[in-house]
């Protein structure tokens, strides 16, 4: 198992590149996810207000 992590002596190059790729993709994932959740929550809130106002008027 140990030679796996040593990556034939190149561990300090192979693992950081996988690590960084993972980090950047994780950041993109979180940003996209949060952006969607925030937009949906805000939209629900505004939509509810709008529907309530319309019901009152009708």
């Amino acid at each position: 198992m140990s030679d796996l992590f040593s990556m034939g002596g190149y561990a300090s190059f192979v693992w950081p590149s996988y690590g960084l790729a993972f980090l950047v993709m994780l950041a993109l994932f979180i940003d996209s996810r949060l952006r969607l959740k925030k937009a949906e929550a805000e939209f629900e809130k505004l939509d509810a207000v709008r529907k309530a106002a319309r019901d009152q008027r009708s």
Binding site: S32, K38, A39, E42, L46, R50
Partner: peptide, 27 residues
């Protein structure tokens, strides 16, 4: 497919953002 998943999320949030802006303007 990772790119497609995230792209769909981002487009959905852009559509909702536009709707939120329109509702706010209407208000």
């Amino acid at each position: 497919t990772f790119y497609a998943t995230l792209l769909l999320w981002r487009v959905r949030s852009e559509i909702l953002q536009t709707r939120i802006r329109n509702i706010r303007l209407a208000q």
